Every structure is written in C-alpha cells, then in structure tokens.
Simulated scan of single mutants.
Amino acid sequence: MKHRALLVAVALLLPGGAAMAQSGPWGPGADDAAFAQMLKTSFKGRGVATLDRLNQDETQVFCSDPETVYAPESAARREEIEKVNLASVKWPADGVWLGDWKEGEKIAQSGRGNTWTDKPEQVNGGNCYNCHQISAEEISHGTIGPSLHNYGKLRGTDDAVMKATWAKIYNSKSNNACSNMPRAGHMGILSEEQMKHLMALLLDPRSPVNQ
C-alpha cells in the first residue's frame, strides 16, 4: 500500500497514535483515505497558512504516488501534465522580460512569506538560495537544484532562453512534471514584477550571476 509506512510513522507522532497505527483501517485502498483524513485532522489553519493547501491539483496527485510517477508506463502521463502546466504560464503582460537584478538578488536571498506567522501584506521571497548556487560569492546555498552560476553567460539571452527561463520560474512543472521547485507564478508566490527581477538576476550580463 502506497502510504501505509508513512501513515504509521505519522500516526505514532500523534496523541493516541500507537493505537491508531495498530488498528488501521488497512483494507485495500483504505490507507489512502486514512492518510488523507489524517492530514485534514492533523493540520490547523493559522493566519495565511490555510487548510486549502491540503487540496491537490492533478499534478500534485500524480506526483504524490511514488509507485507510478517514474514508471516507464507513466511517461505519456508525465508529458500530458507538463503540457497542461505549460499552458498555464502567463507571459509578461508588457512583453518585457527583465527587471532589476539588484532587486532579484534580494528576492533570491529572502525566504520569508506564506507561513502562519507572516502577515498577508508581507512580500514573499523566492528562497532561491535554499536549493541553488546562484552567485560565486554566496557561501551558503542549497544543492537540491543545479547551480545557476553563469546562467545567462552559458545560455545567452535569445527569445527561446527568455521564454524557457520564465516558464521554469512561473511553473516549474511545465518542463518537469514532478520538479521539486515551487511554481512561483502559478501558485501566486511571486508577482510578475518579482519574476522579472529574478530573470534579470539570472540573465543580465551585469548581474553577479554572470561574472
């Protein structure tokens, strides 16, 4: 069963969880329903972190199933999901791709926003350094994602690069159905203006990224 091990582990952490873990239900397919119910009853909405975050779209449902997501027979489904996510991308309204790389650096450095302690009016950060190396000077960065140092220097700045980069930031699932990268534009994490600033950070030749 897909979620049984995780369900048991989570149950043991909750009040009365040991009894719950032993009692089930463990019938065919019941583990999925029990897991979903546990999520709904374990999380409480506070501030901007509301319970609607537990609602999954078709992409998230597909990518939450480790038994099939990377199976060879799922290749067609992955391609279909990528096409759906690419179709969701909203391109710059004014046709301008790049903002201010200095502002982009601030956004990349900031991981604030979208937690229950944050205020609705607070501007979200991109939290980019949590997963990527971006500039050579940055000594603290994550390695979950690839290094983005020299991003524009290596790729150039033609329309194809601009479009691919924008799509990746707006909706990372558009070219990788189960990417770990947040869908910054699609999920409303970042504004169009913020995305332009991040684009400049990656592609402006004056940016430290391309030095």
Rank of each mutant, 00 (worst) to 15 (best):
P66D: 10
C63Y: 05
L51D: 14
N55T: 13
F62Q: 00
P25V: 05
G29V: 10
P72I: 01
G16N: 09
V8M: 09
S42C: 02
L14I: 06
T50D: 05
T59P: 00
P72C: 01
A9M: 13
D57H: 11
A19H: 12
V10C: 12
A19Y: 04
Q22W: 02
D65R: 12
T41N: 14
R53C: 02
F62L: 07
A36P: 00
R53I: 11
L6W: 09
L12Q: 15
N55K: 13
S42H: 10
A9P: 00
F62E: 04
Y70S: 12
V10W: 09
W26F: 07
A33R: 14
D32F: 08
A21H: 13
A33M: 08
Q22H: 02
G29M: 06
G29N: 06
G29H: 03
T68Y: 00
G45I: 03
F43W: 15
D31W: 08
L54M: 09
S64Q: 12
S42I: 04
D57M: 04
P15I: 07
G47P: 03
D65T: 08
V48R: 00
P25C: 03
F35W: 12
L51G: 05
C63F: 10
D57C: 10
P15S: 07
A33Q: 15
T59N: 06
D31T: 14
G24E: 02
V10G: 01
K44N: 04
E58N: 09
M38N: 01
A71D: 10
Q37A: 15
A18L: 07
D32V: 09
G27D: 04
Q56S: 01
G47W: 03
A18P: 02
L51Q: 13
S42R: 06
A36Q: 10
A18F: 14
A11T: 04
L13C: 15
A71R: 03
L54R: 09
V61N: 03
A36N: 06
V69D: 00
